[in-house]
């Protein structure tokens, strides 16, 4: 693993074709105020990164390094204190809550460590949630959900509730859910953290498959062997990027 200088683009392999830029972070900062005092805690101290179409990126770092904050910003769950975040062709760093919700439902797919399926909904209903908030008609949602559940191999479980599935199966449903809106970015937050190694490997295989199809995946992890399977590894420490390398 090589260490690259901060904020310089990672070295390209020879013959690299410039691809479409999906997301650009420009000196992004995030500062948390401590309630009831004037003390401010900087979580991100000016992050500039560019993500191209089809990249498979791991964001690493110890706890407190700012990787969760970065993922929240990338996922439009939070707004930066300073800097700009361009997603697709729109600057989303200053959008209001409703517009951010819209972006989340149309352009982003989330995969969480703890799966985060809604317990009272069936597998299919869980997958349809992002489309529901886009206002997609029920029949279209159902068709799309069924076509995606086949890809993660759970078509025999479509009417089950999350509690009736194993962790690996739940995460596969969550991945299918993240794919249902054809997102620009798939954001995964420690997707193997709650799974045993074998199941984790299976989930990573699915991600690898998605990467081959050309999906763009950003994955937060603190496990080196998980990061090793990604094409590009960004390491954060104390709110700054300390390394950004391409795996070969």
């Amino acid at each position: 693993m090589k260490t690259a200088s901060i904020q310089s683009p990672p070295p390209r392999p020879p013959g690299h074709q410039p691809r479409k830029v999906l997301a650009r972070l420009d000196r992004l900062t995030k500062t948390y105020g401590v309630p009831g005092s004037a003390v401010e805690v900087p979580a991100l101290k000016g992050i500039s990164l560019t993500f191209e179409e089809g990249e498979y990126v791991a964001i690493c770092g110890h706890s407190g390094s700012g990787k969760s904050t970065l993922l929240n910003l990338l996922g439009c769950l939070d707004r930066p204190t300073g800097g700009r975040y361009i997603l697709g062709d729109a600057d989303v760093s200053r959008l209001d809550d409703d517009a951010l919700s819209d972006i989340r439902s149309k352009r982003l797919g989330f995969v969480f460590q703890s799966f985060n399926l809604i317990p009272q909904l069936t597998v299919l209903e869980n997958m349809e949630v992002p489309l529901f908030y886009q206002g997609v008609p029920p029949r279209l949602r159902r068709e799309k959900a069924i076509s995606l559940i086949e890809r993660v191999g759970l078509q025999h479980r479509i009417h089950h509730r999350p509690m009736e599935l194993s962790g690996g199966q739940q995460q596969r449903v969550a991945i299918a859910r993240a794919l249902i809106n054809d997102p620009l970015l798939i954001l995964a937050d420690e997707p193997t953290g709650n799974l045993d190694t074998a199941t984790g490997d299976m989930i990573l295989d699915i991600f690898a498959g998605l990467h081959k199809e050309g999906k763009t995946i950003l994955m937060v992890t603190h496990e080196d062997d998980v990061a090793a399977r990604c094409r590009r590894v960004i390491t954060l420490r104390d709110g700054q990027v300390i390394s950004d390398v391409q795996n070969d």
Partner: peptide, 11 residues
């Protein structure tokens, strides 16, 4: 979860 998946406050 619903908010992350695109639900607005009014939803």
């Amino acid at each position: 979860i619903r908010r992350a998946l695109g639900a607005k406050r009014r939803d």
